[in-house]
């Protein structure tokens, strides 16, 4: 299992469209993906879970990924977060 923190950088935060892109990307990997904010941990492949985190700009999210493609998954998701979830 590997873990890494990312910061939400896009203006609108982890809103529905951004969360949808995250879940899309996460769904491409076999590994189990967890996303945590403070004490709340949700399934990274659940859009409802991500929305519940209500992560505004500046929020720090802790990713923990476990599985045979965990390294690729982490790289892809960290990259997505760094690019502001592809928000225009």
């Amino acid at each position: 299992m590997i873990a890494q923190s990312v910061t939400v950088v896009n203006a609108l935060g982890l809103h529905a469209r951004a969360a949808a892109r995250f879940v899309h990307r996460a769904g491409q990997f076999r590994s189990r993906i967890r996303v945590a904010r403070d004490s709340q941990t949700v399934d990274g492949k659940s859009i409802l879970g991500l929305l519940l985190l209500a992560a505004a700009r500046g929020t720090v999210l802790d990713l923990s990924i476990d599985g045979d493609d965990e390294a690729q998954a982490m790289a892809a998701l960290v990259d997505l977060a760094a690019r502001g979830f592809e928000d225009p």
Binding site: R17, A20, V23, D43
Partner: peptide, 19 residues
């Protein structure tokens, strides 16, 4: 496309493990 994204989100909700 921006407006269509809401349905993409709904599709993900449909398959959501929490739902």
């Amino acid at each position: 496309q921006a407006q269509a994204a809401i349905f993409a989100a709904q599709l993900l909700m449909l398959d959501d493990p929490m739902f």
